[in-house]
Simulated assay, not measured.
Amino acid sequence: MVGVDYKLTVDGQIADQSRPGQPLEFIVGTGMLLPKFEEALLGKEIGESVAFTLEPKDGYGEIIAEAVVDLPKDIFMVDGKLAEDILFVGSQVPMSDAQGNRMMGIVREVGDTTVKMDFNHPMAGKTLNFEVDVVSVRDVTPEDLQGGCSCGECGDGCGEGCGDHDGHCNCQA
Rank of each mutant, 00 (worst) to 15 (best):
V2W: 12
V2L: 14
V4T: 14
K7F: 11
V10K: 10
I14V: 15
D16C: 08
S18K: 11
R19S: 15
I27F: 07
I27W: 11
V28G: 10
T30K: 14
L34K: 13
E38N: 07
A40R: 14
L41Y: 01
K44D: 01
K44L: 12
I46W: 09
I46C: 08
A51S: 12
G59L: 00
G59T: 01
G59D: 00
G61K: 00
E62Q: 10
I64Q: 08
I64D: 13
V69A: 04
V69W: 03
V69M: 08
V69D: 06
L71P: 05
I75P: 11
F76W: 02
F76E: 08
M77G: 00
M77R: 03
M77Q: 02
D79S: 04
D79Q: 08
K81L: 07
L82H: 06
A83M: 06
L87M: 10
F88I: 06
S91C: 06
S91L: 08
Q92G: 12
A98G: 13
A98K: 11
Q99D: 08
G100N: 13
R102E: 04
M104I: 09
G105A: 13
I106A: 07
R108K: 09
R108P: 01
R108Q: 09
V110Q: 02
G111Y: 07
T113D: 05
M117T: 00
M117Y: 00
M117V: 06
P122G: 00
M123W: 11
A124W: 00
K126V: 01
T127E: 12
T127M: 07
N129G: 08
N129Q: 13
F130Y: 15
V132D: 08
V132L: 06
V135S: 04
S136C: 02
S136E: 07
R138Q: 14
D139V: 10
T141W: 12
P142L: 05
P142A: 02
E143W: 08
Q146M: 11
C149N: 03
S150F: 13
E153Y: 15
E153I: 14
G155V: 13
D156C: 04
D156V: 14
G157N: 10
C158H: 14
G159V: 06
G159T: 06
G161V: 02
C162W: 05
C162S: 14
D164Q: 03
G167R: 02
H168W: 03
C171N: 05
Q172R: 00
Q172V: 02
